[in-house]
Design a protein around this nucleic acid. Structure first.
Lengths: 126, 126, 126, 126
DNA sequence: GTGGTCTAGACCACT
DNA sequence: GTGGTCTAGACCACT
């Protein structure tokens, strides 16, 4: 479920936070569900516990998870809020990207076709 | 025209290559137009010449500029090809972003509205 | 009356001791009144008995409660002394906080207004 | 200027962030002033570079400093905003502490005396 | 030179 | 068992 690309230049801890955030937003991880322990994930992925720890701290800082001392890390109860935040981020990226597209002389039609193609491809699998 | 943000974490040389690529794609820099010399740009922006040089090398590696020994750096004749490459990059970003949007449960309508808004805002100024 | 926040990073046993100390200082628990048994509180709050025990030991260590073998835990006769200790702690916190405030360039007036506002709000409810 | 108490249970990285925040708020560190390098501070304080790094990351996350790649860490231009945030934090602490004081039956007069004493003591030295 | 990331492994408090 | 902190030291990109 969680996959790390060591060749990618983006830090491992950041890949992990994105990955897990994605699992929360897409509903794979339910509210209050427990995440794998630091040591377990470290073992499974072959990544140092410190790096996992850094990712988990970041997730908590962003309000995506909460920690219970001596118990473990759990998904926030408020996953809707996380999804909303994520949608806001994506909207902002669409805005920036569309400005870039206009400056590169792309038309509304070109963009529509790209997006429609993705919806057509992915539509069935979701 | 060229602006560098020292507080931004993306490397200066990468900011420069993006910046100049953007000027080529948007038509501000014409085919065969000469770029400012390394020394001149270094002086204007207060940036180490090595960093400017790295950006210029990168631009040439990407086929965006060509160097004439003893003369300087010039924009490629083939700016259309550069624009095409840029459009391909943007298309790929739209694809990735749209997949992300679907997994965050955004609808086709939501996305359309965002893009339309940008076209409405920016339409006049381009 | 006793409430524990599992998401709070302060240890459960410390939350419990604070909570019960507060009930003594504010007069909700009277001198010589019996505390609920470890088992009972453990059941009510869904907390491991060891954790409750640690809190009770701490309360006794601080002279807030005393234990009668075979009977249970009771609030000290001398709740005034406890209140005095608590007031001393609060005074010390005011001193530290006020030093911090001065270093952050806050004025006597600003501080007075904050405190007066709290007295105005809370005054009726106590 | 920067002092760490190893006996204190609060993490070293947190002591460091508080310490440096304090130097910014009290004006000892000026806007855009460079902080000592990670390695230098590590050597001076006898603390592992990783721990210093963690403190510096936290300061940047809080907008107190900014990092220039290959150059170092600098105090934000906006120290006024930091001071304001700090004052807001202190105000909130006064509010919570005053509620606690009221529940421990302290009077307005008692509190005033404590604060006045601190202003009298510290007044000259600032 | 600078900060950022990562591994390896110890030790701590809490449950 | 759990996560949080810290040391020791390597390697990286950037200036």
């Amino acid at each position: 479920m969680i996959h790390v690309d060591f060749k990618d230049r983006t830090p491992i801890w950041e890949q992990l936070t994105r990955n897990i955030t994605h699992l929360v937003v897409s509903g794979v991880l339910a509210p209050n569900e427990q995440l794998p322990s630091v040591r377990q994930l470290s073992g499974e992925l072959g990544i140092n516990p410190n790096t996992i720890q850094k990712a988990y701290s970041e997730l908590e800082r962003r309000g995506i998870t909460y920690t219970v001392a001596g118990k473990g890390c759990f998904v926030t109860e408020n996953t809707d809020r996380i999804t909303q935040t994520k949608q806001d981020e994506i909207s902002e990226k669409y805005r920036a990207l569309t400005k870039e597209a206009m400056q590169a002389h792309m038309t509304r039609q070109q963009i529509d076709e790209i997006i429609s193609a993705v919806f057509a491809e992915q539509g069935g699998s979701l």
